[in-house]
Amino acid sequence: MTYQDFDGRNLCSDAIRAHRRLLTRNGYPPSLEYVTGELAVSSSALSSIFHDDAHLLKVVIESALMQLHDRCIQATTAVEDDNPIIQLEALAVAYVGWALDHSGEFLALRSTTLGALREDDELTRFERAVLELLQRLLVRARDEGLLASRDDPEVLAELISSYICGAVHRVMLQRLPQEEPGPRDLLGVCKNLRLLLQRLIG
């Protein structure tokens, strides 16, 4: 059994996409059985890839966080100026954009009923890497005299991350499940985010 057994379809990728769609639409993780029905494949097809519902959810979340990491890296490296403040803003905006594009996974990670996900160090390693990148940019900014204060970069990174998560979560509670967050939401969150960065960084 391989991932490509059904007319060239990659069942793993198809299952992740179907799970994401259902998670965003319904607000809770679909079962492996439900995803199997959505893909119109036999139960043995997906069960040979995913052990159970929890395994499928973990793969979906890990895939999303990997995209978060890649998106933030690309955003910072795309900045032509080596100024860490400009790179920091690009990273923060990329994080907001990712969260709005992956609302189901974002909410699942912060759900009280699925809180154990955040305790999985292997699962959240990509998110931690983004926070560490944010901290390194703040350290550079401090060392180059670009910060408005001598605040601890680790504390500032946590503050910025908490603001992003809180602002995005508020938008999602307002929009979902009737509609998904859109470009106007991204612009609104990023506008307030820039104001926060100006206050923190000067």
Rank of each mutant, 00 (worst) to 15 (best):
L193Y: 10
E179Q: 14
T112S: 15
S149D: 08
V96Q: 04
E132C: 13
D52Y: 02
S162A: 15
T113F: 09
C12F: 07
R125L: 12
A64T: 00
L137E: 01
L138Q: 01
G182M: 11
M1W: 10
E122H: 11
N83V: 02
S161C: 11
S162K: 10
L117M: 08
L107S: 09
T76Y: 00
D81P: 01
L138K: 00
L23I: 02
L11D: 04
Y34C: 12
D52I: 04
L117D: 02
A78V: 07
L39R: 07
E144F: 08
D101Y: 07
L11A: 09
A78S: 15
I160K: 01
E154H: 09
T124D: 06
L195G: 12
Q67G: 07
Y163T: 05
Y95H: 15
V139M: 09
I61G: 00
A148P: 04
T112V: 13
R140N: 06
T2W: 10
L134P: 01
W98S: 06
R21Q: 10
L114A: 11
E38I: 07
D53I: 04
V189T: 01
I61A: 01
I16W: 01
R142H: 08
I160Q: 03
D143P: 02
R142C: 04
A157I: 04
L88H: 04
L186C: 14
A94N: 03
V96E: 03
T77W: 09
Q4F: 14
L23Q: 00
V130C: 11
L117I: 06
V189A: 02
R17K: 09
C72A: 13
L196H: 10
M66R: 15
V60S: 02
H51L: 05
E80R: 02
P30Y: 04
R17L: 06
G182I: 07
E180H: 12
L22S: 13
V79Q: 00
R136N: 14
R128Y: 10
A40C: 12
L109F: 01
P84M: 03
R199S: 15
G97N: 14
G104A: 11
L100F: 12
L117E: 03
A78H: 11
V130T: 08
A45H: 02
